[in-house]
Design a protein around this nucleic acid. Sequence first.
DNA 1: GCGGACTGCTTACCT
DNA 2: ACAGGTAAGCAGTCCGCG
Length: 897
Amino acid sequence: MPELQEGRVGLLLSSVYVGDEQTVYLLFYDPQENSLVTWRDRTNHKPYCYTKMEYKGIAEAICNEDKKLSLQLTTKRDLINDQIIEVVKIVAPDPLSIGGTDSSVRERVRSWEADIKYHENYLYDSGLIPGSYYKRNGESIVNEDYGISGTVKEALKHLTLNNNSSNNSSENGNRYGHISSNGYQDHVISWANLLNQPVPELKRVALDIEVESEEGQMPTPREHERRIIAVGLVGTDDFKKILVLGKRNSAEVEKVNMAEAELCLTEKELIEKTFEVISFYPIVLTYNGDDFDLPYLYARSQDPRIDPISHSAIPKEQVPILVKRDSFVKRGTLAEPVHLRNAIHLDLFRTFQNRSIQIYAFGNKYSEYTLNAISQALLGEGKLDLDLDISELPTQKLAEYCLKDADLTFRLTSFGNNLLMKLLIVIARIARSSLDDVSRFGVNQWIRGMLYYEHRKNNLLIPRREELGAKGSSSTIAIIKEKKYRGGLVVEPKLGIHFNVIVVDFASLYPSIIKVYNLSYETVNCPHHDCENDAGQRIAGTTHWICKKNKGLTSQLIGSLRDLRVRYYKQLSKEISISLEERLLYGVVSQAIKVILNASYGVMGAEIFPLYCLPVADATAALGRTTTFSAIEKCKEIGIDVIYGDTDSLFLKGPSPTKVDEITRWARAKHGVDLEIDKTYRYVVFSELKKNYLGVLSDGTVDVKGLTGKKSHTPPFIRNAFSHMLDILSKVNSENDFESAREKIKSILQENAKNLVSRRIPVQDLSFNVMINKSPDKYGKKIAPSTVKSGSIDGTDIIGKDFHKGLPQHIKAARFLVAKGREIKAGGIISYVKTSTAEGVKPVELAKPEEIDTDKYLESMEVTFDQLLASLNFNFKSLVGQPRQSNLDELFWGGSV
DNA sequence: GCGGACTGCTTACCT
DNA sequence: ACAGGTAAGCAGTCCGCG
């Protein structure tokens, strides 16, 4: 790979540690050449970790024994104890000396910062941020300052001014103590400088391979016995190519009628051509390439059988895939960890599995992690349907199928103006993580990167887990047992139909609280007696207190990001005076920040997060409840009727604009948070249930929350009837309209019940569709101690002859399928119907119409529709008769209402 | 032996 | 593999009952 040339600019994408040279290489994207360039570290940076002075003797002993190691004394700020301390820095020539083997330094002395991957360490220490631009200046790398435009600077000045110059101290960005806000301003400016940089179109290619297989058997990289028969490649600039093995089933060369197709006579040729194509691309995309396509390609490239004439494999140095054979290979993984020599590999399967990406970036539009399901949901188009096994497909079909997969994979990154690529780049900036790591890591690691970077930048010692644990535990009792602390406040909804409802909510409530109350691991339960003994520093309803001397690191980072999103990027993404390209970028930035903000509170209460600190999470939730509760009280006081509320939202019944304005101003002044109008409902229907309601917005849009009729597992025929009912309700404008709506709903329900009982509804439409979260054999193994009787001690009996006993219904159905030889994997959807057979359920594909238990379905309809009908003053039974009565024939259609 | 109260498990959803 | 809170369906146990 070429090196970054003098004066040239590159977008930093990744850092890689090269073991042979004991050196880090940076990978840049050259936006002019659309290629990757590298930069070898010239600073002689070395792996290291720290220990404290009391362990200095041990550190010296280790160094005496292992001459490769050396010691340095230096100082760091220890935030846990709020003091500057002397520390011992242990420097090693290679990362494995610090951690990763049984004899590494971190196994022998109590170490700090020894768990950070070396390639991450390097970025933090160099102050280099992936996703941002750098220029080569002689033998060093310098920031390429894009600067921010004059108008943007003005807007930002405004934002920071609004925060600091208010005469009301409660608007000062923090509610405790007298702490300078300069740090906050600096953060805002540097975030904007970073995030406003443009994102170039990234040249990339998607790759998908097809392998011969026996029927029903999925090939695995471990047993790479089967030939690769097709490779699809789809890239930027409309590049499309499908390589097919030409003589698969006979000596005849097969024919493919596609402009993009190229027939290869041997598998070796096929693989070599694949390698040639990807060598032109800086970024390679796959769907599950980490565990399948790349390791499989590698394994076959090393197998002499790919060339039937010379029996020779492809020399390793010509293979662009590297296999890391190291101790990190987890047991049970199918493949060796793999990466590309000259490109960055993004495995979209892992990216789309990320819950934050799924929920916050793509609005929960997909719920299954197959390429087909995700493409259907996001592109409106799925994989090609196959009626044969891959191996049996005619060559033409195989080529079309494989190319389609590569095409979908590519388009998942290109739709919406390259939304996903831009999002990953912007998250890389915030998380200070390489693009490949961002695409594979969860949100906790993104936030970890952001905070670790900040520690290094300010010479702060990153605390060990147990130091954070010593700050105390939660002091509230959760409502759900097995949970660690109490969460959000949910207000009992007022039953019935309410017209003219305004929903207000606190903009980013938890991040606001983290900002306003100065919450951070070092400021909650800080070491100062002065703060601990100050009644004004205590958090109501908890045993925690907050520091008044120092501004918390997390508070500043999250606070500045929150303000930028709420008051700057959200507006800019709608600002028509700037270019469309800029507007779109600001929209992406706003989304990326939202992802980080939404998780920033949660990670504090998550054990996997390295800066896990329960008191912070506990305090945040407690202050959230206080804030919301206080707003409800205030509403009552000024005469606003609060009919419902959940965590950060309040449903107000017919408030005047003046009163809404009053409560908004009050929230800002009293709590320093933004209470905004979120929605205006023409009317809202509440049952007695929390998190369950229907609302019709001013424009007629129907909002349904939590109701069974909309849940994904509900049978399609109920969901369809439910959606018809919503259509009718959306046309209701006033109390009087309900009368005719009732009649229409009545006829829809009667129609459906009639079809059901006369078995005219296709079995397919009767299926419950439930996700299976574990492999089907992992259910039902736990037996309550009291049920263990002599003779059946462990759960294996249950999987014996009566393997359906005690299992959830979808698992019973899944086991029917397993018995039929179908492979059922965790994360898949099981479709089953309720039957009058012994087990009570059957997978849809095995059920006959006459086996359907129609009574059960009438019950399902009843409970589903009564969630709403009860509030509309009628119920299912009154329409459809008594489904549980014996003479079903005499049901409703006699006209009993 | 049967039914209701209760618990635990599982999934889907809300904020 | 960010949090807690709510709902629902099912399968099981416990307990009372002449």
